[in-house]
Design a protein around this nucleic acid. Structure first.
Length: 278
DNA sequence: CTATGGCCCTGGTTGC
DNA sequence: TGCAACCAGGGCCATA
């Protein structure tokens, strides 16, 4: 499932094929991908516009558009579970599971999505849509001291709190489990009971793991995530706990455990991440 | 504020 | 072999 590293990789790899391109035609094959927006209005907003930037905020890919040198809006793409963005040379037939396609003056951008949870939405000003998001884990705002007091200010279990995009933006199920393992923290530990020193370790773990995963172009393990070029990522080879239920912990060799927390599969080591007292 | 559960979706896996 | 039930899960929403 695409999380920050996979979305970052996607944005980086499609950017060179998109920046400077003009949208010639838009095809909406699955209306709900537009998240309730009218397909005609969506198409009208895009056709004739030129792509000026492609970047990422949280798990959103942002594609900014202009006309005659003036900004006209931004398309936000959320890959959710199985979404992918790929750019094909023009004239090729739309690949399987193409939900929205943009024919460009050179090539075609396809939004592929098996499970149809993904979204592609147009905003004149995307600020409001992104307003509630927490800080970027790799950004300057996400400091150890901010994190320490932010944890103290909440009293939720770490796992759901780190998944909460309004608290911290970009983590998903995989990288939360991996970060908690590296920091030696149980997923059900309450955030306000994390000692400051340990909060610092978790802070570093989150940043280091995300950076390492970006270096390896994300994680591929279930046949879904691929880079826009069709290649699997490489970080799955470095998983310590995710998807390793029953296998020996790489640190202490005790079999790893899987529980369900907030309807999410949660993987951890009972020895390296001791159970909180209450 | 926090917790829980349903919903959206489909392909792959499991169970009989 | 065939088929139905079940599962994964990010974000959002309703409810307690």
């Amino acid at each position: 499932m695409p999380e920050l590293p996979e979305v970052e990789t996607t944005a980086r790899l499609i950017r060179p094929d998109l920046v400077g391109r003009k949208v010639r035609e838009v095809n909406v094959e699955w209306t709900r991908t537009l998240g309730g927006q009218d397909p005609f209005a969506f198409t009208e907003a895009l056709v004739g516009a030129t792509i000026v930037t492609v970047d990422r905020r949280a798990k959103w890919v942002r594609i900014a558009l202009e006309r005659r040198g003036k900004s006209v809006g931004t398309v936000l793409v959320h890959l959710r579970m199985t979404g992918r963005l790929v750019v094909n040379p023009s004239r090729e037939e739309a690949p399987d599971y193409a939900r929205v396609s943009w024919r460009l003056d050179r090539g075609t951008l396809h939004f592929l999505d098996v499970r149809k949870f993904g979204r592609m939405e147009f905003f004149r000003d995307p600020t409001e849509r992104l307003a509630g998001l927490g800080p970027e884990p790799l950004g300057e705002d996400f400091t150890a001291s901010w994190f320490r007091s932010a944890l103290r200010g909440r009293s939720r279990a770490l796992k759901p709190l780190l998944l909460d995009q309004t608290f911290l933006a970009g983590l998903g199920n995989i990288y939360v489990d991996e970060s908690l393992f590296r920091a030696g923290l149980h997923p059900l530990r309450r955030s306000d009971r994390v000692p400051p020193r340990r909060a610092d370790v978790l802070h570093a773990a989150i940043r280091d793991i995300l950076a390492e995963a970006i270096e390896r172009e994300g994680s591929s393990f279930d046949g879904f995530y691929r880079t826009p070029e069709g290649q699997p990522g490489g970080y799955q080879h470095l998983f310590q706990v995710y998807g390793r239920e029953g296998l020996p912990c790489r640190v202490c060799e005790r079999p790893l455990k899987r529980i369900v927390v907030g309807q999410r599969g949660t993987h951890f080591c009972t020895r390296c991440q001791p159970t909180p007292r209450s």
